[in-house]
Design a protein around this nucleic acid. Sequence first.
DNA 1: CGAGCCGTTGAGGGGATTCAAGCTCAGTGG
DNA 2: CCACTGAGCTTGAATCCCCTCAACGGCTCG
Lengths: 265, 265
Amino acid sequence: MGAAWLAHGQAGRRQGATEVSPAHAQVIPLYRQDNSHPQARVCAQCEVRRSALFGALDAAGLDQIHSHIASLTLAPGDTVYQRGELGAAVYTVRSGVVRFERVTERGDRRIVRLAGQGDLIGQESVLQRVHGDDAVACTEVELCRIPCHLLSDMSAREPALLHELMSRWQNALDAAETWVTDLTTGPARRRVLRLLLKLCDYTSAQGEIWLPSRDEMGAMLDMSVETASRLISALRREGVLQTPGLRTVRVARDGLVRVLAAEDV
Amino acid sequence: MGAAWLAHGQAGRRQGATEVSPAHAQVIPLYRQDNSHPQARVCAQCEVRRSALFGALDAAGLDQIHSHIASLTLAPGDTVYQRGELGAAVYTVRSGVVRFERVTERGDRRIVRLAGQGDLIGQESVLQRVHGDDAVACTEVELCRIPCHLLSDMSAREPALLHELMSRWQNALDAAETWVTDLTTGPARRRVLRLLLKLCDYTSAQGEIWLPSRDEMGAMLDMSVETASRLISALRREGVLQTPGLRTVRVARDGLVRVLAAEDV
DNA sequence: CGAGCCGTTGAGGGGATTCAAGCTCAGTGG
DNA sequence: CCACTGAGCTTGAATCCCCTCAACGGCTCG
């Protein structure tokens, strides 16, 4: 009863946050090569492949697609796409953090979600819909660009790909709803702590995580720049935090959890 | 180039909020009937069909499914499903408002999204995933229950159904992100006004809309019950609002827009 | 009729914003 | 080389918004 491809469950990612992937893969500027095998080899070795969109494909499947997939690197502040644009591709995040932001009718921007390693972004392009928000690189970001027509072609033969695609949609939906409960609820201090906790899972270079600018924190947590600064400073004074660089934080994950639990007085 | 079913764009719903559907369809307790045609007739006449999941199906397709689809009616407060459950069906909202809520680790609940007429809920069941939040009826709610195995069966033959399904996922994602920008941003008064504006689009009985309990408003907008009460009372005193019943509001949509615009002093 | 739930309103306190002034640091040109 | 500049971070002071605590009224229900 029923097509098999719709069955076979898969748990949501980044739940336990224990799936620590090492550092960066070998970065080769590959773009579109005539000799197709090098790219296929890169894909096969890619450490995010098992968690990425094409993780379901076998070696034969990979051979067909590698020549169409482009790898690109973005600097902090670069935009992947903008709200209102009609995209022709989706992207897999290979490393780094991407933010999704919208502009309220009053003119101030609001960050509504983050994407990290293994996440698929811009899926609305598959449906020929315009992007609903701006996608901007927070850190240095490595992406794989997958043309939509490639997805259409492959999904006809590989039903598992559609399952995977829908699974990504559910991941994004879950992330957006978790955003509401975690980062828009309660007093400012608790929101900051929860944000740091979440960032631990996104940029897990083991202790050294990416720290957003105070302005970004304000846009994520709906607070003023000054409040964000004050709270980070307070956490630093309390010893929960160290800031070696201006954009990096040393923090112990379970330390955060402990401080967060102590908030319930 | 590419399978045709992935193309053919479709705009997001409830954007202009001008698609005013009349009142309720004829409500017939139908559940599963041996004579299959009556249900098919009901489906064909259903006013939400064009916007619903099976809107893409023709009459022949409807004939195959009607006997598996159950219609159910929920009272305010009834739960459709609960977080952690593994559902075996998805639901189309025929009328009424459904809320999605989660419980923060501190124990207080938070409403993260609403669903209304034409929306599909519980789609994570298609992926064999457990529900991520509780789905609870806010008003009286009429649902169509669609078993997952039915979706699996049909989607193999009707590729348009998969497109429609993914489209629903994108709708939900967009709704969740809009929730962040509209209802979790800015001072309490503005959040209340935006909520009322949103409710105009969900229960558009032309002027008479559903008013949540103060407790629900608190869970939606992250504010105390008292603040919600105060703000509603203030709007009533200002003449923006009338509350004929305790759970209904008379309000002019453009009046709300005007007041909202006047907030930017 | 009392109990309980929900909505309303008041008083007080605390947390976040706003306005403001220094601060560090990188880039620039004298 | 170093003052100048501007952007981003920090900190202070005053204001105000919102929460908490509290009391009260209307309503339903046992």
